[in-house]
Structure formats: C-alpha cells, structure tokens
C-alpha cells in the first residue's frame, strides 16, 4: 500500500497521479431504501499504469468506473482527474472532460448501428468541434492503430464482435485521452477474440496509455500490472504483480 500519497481532504494530488479518489461514495436512493454501491473508495493511479479492477458481481466495479469516467457524480468524497477536482463540476464541464480526457470502452460496444466504422470513431471529434477533414484523418488513424484500416466503411452489422470492440477502442482513443477505461470489454467475446482485444490493450499500454479495466476473469486480469479488488463497495485488496 506504499503506492499512495498520504491524502487528506484539502490536499492536491502529486503531479504524476492521474486518478485520485478519496473516500469516494455513491448511494442510490431506491424510494426510501438507500443502496450504498460505493462506501468510501480511496484509490490512486499513476500515469501509464495498467490497472485491473476485479470483484464479485454487485461489488461496485461499474459504479466506480462510471464515476471515474465522469458519467456519474459521487454522493460523497473527492475525485481528482489529472490534477483537476472533478467531483464538484457541472454538467457541461463534465461533458467536456468526457470528451477530452476519457476514452470509455463498454462491454456492449455501443456503436451507432447505421453509421460506418469511420463515422462511429469520428463522433467524439464532432463534439470536440473539429472540422470534417481533420476528423476523418484522425478517425482513420485511430482505426489503423487497432488494425482496422481496411474496414472503415463497414457498418457494425458487417463486422465481427472483436472487430466491433476494436472500433469502440479506436473511438475511445481518437481524442488522445488521459485515461482509457474499459468495463468488461471482453465480456461479450469468446476467449480467442478476447485474447486479441487484450493484445490491443497491451500494445496501447506499452505506447504509454494509462489503462483501467474491469474484468471477472483472472487470465484477463493477468495482463495488468496491478489488480484492485472491490468487495461491498470498498477496496479489499490492491496488489502489484508481474505482468
């Protein structure tokens, strides 16, 4: 546990700590009954780390990822991303951070079914306000990086599951985000395809990308240099391992 800075409320994270959560909590009010999905998660992730998050179903992994990905706001605690305190930002500022700082890969791919691979990858750039030509060039480049340079004009239903997830990874990368988040990215794929996808993540990590990934499977987690385990909305273990 010596990985972490001794952080107290009122402090600012050290410069190379890209993600810092301090006693982060998320409770859902289910009509009187309060579900405490996260009960105070304190976690620090440095630049260029590769972290796997594990834990039993319902332990709060997705809830944590959504908070880190700025898709959701905490009900308690602090969240610092890249030196900026995100936990008390407004709606539009969060949208901007999602657009610029975060690349999110979902279990279910979440591609626009009627749009081509290229257009799907272009989407974040549209909201970044880039011109059409630049968008095209950057999206094409991102598709090349995941090995789909020859599938740009294909629609999702013309692609295999693994190819679809690669399009989603290209989309997550296209804005050159500070962190790449993935919530069970291989959950809908067979083991061979999962292997290919893990190759892609591994390569990205080697190129300097910070990666945080939720997974159920130990052989997937084995690709990561650090494994954080959640249990009942709290960090149970946090271990470095040889990749």
């Amino acid at each position: 546990m010596s990985l972490a800075q001794q952080f107290r409320t009122g402090d600012t994270p050290l410069p190379d700590i890209i993600i810092l959560t301090h006693k982060l909590a998320r409770a859902y009010d289910m009509g009187g009954e309060v579900v405490r999905a996260l009960r105070g998660v304190s976690l620090q992730i440095r630049r260029n780390e590769y972290v796997a998050i594990m834990g039993p179903s319902g332990s709060g992994k997705s809830t944590l990822m959504n908070l880190i990905g700025c898709l959701d706001t905490p009900t308690g605690g602090e969240y610092w991303l890249n030196g900026q305190k995100v936990s008390d930002l407004g709606d539009d500022a969060l949208a901007r951070i999602r657009n610029k700082e975060i690349g999110f890969v979902f279990q279910t791919f979440n591609l626009l079914p009627r749009a081509t691979a290229l257009h799907n990858v272009e989407l974040p750039l549209i909201y970044a306000g880039l011109g059409a030509k630049e968008r095209r060039a950057q999206a094409a480049q991102a598709l090349e990086r995941v090995g789909l340079g020859d599938r740009m004009e294909h629609r999702p239903n013309e692609l295999s599951g693994g190819q679809r997830q690669r399009v989603a990874i290209a989309r997550a990368l296209v804005n050159d985000p500070s962190i790449l988040l993935a919530d069970e990215p291989t959950g809908n794929l067979d083991s061979a395809t999962s292997g290919e996808i893990m190759e892609v993540f591994g390569a990205l990590h080697r190129q300097g990308q910070t990666v945080v990934m939720v997974t159920h499977e130990h052989d997937i987690a084995a690709h990561a240099a650090r494994v954080v385990t959640l249990r009942d909305g709290l960090v149970a273990t946090d271990q470095r391992q040889a990749a």
């Binding site: 990905g69 898709l71 709606d91 539009d92 949208a95 901007r96 999602r98 657009n99 610029k100 999110f104 979440n110 626009l112 989407l123 974040p124 909201y127 970044a128 989309r171 804005n175």
Partner: peptide
C-alpha cells in the same frame, strides 16, 4: 435513448 446516452458519454453537452 441509447444513442443519446452514447453521444453524451462521448462528450455531447445538453445543448448539443
């Protein structure tokens, strides 16, 4: 709805 959620997750603001 899913498309709207996706667009928001990729950085679309309310005004977009």
């Amino acid at each position: 709805t899913r498309e709207i959620g996706l667009r928001k997750s990729l950085g679309a603001r309310r005004s977009d």
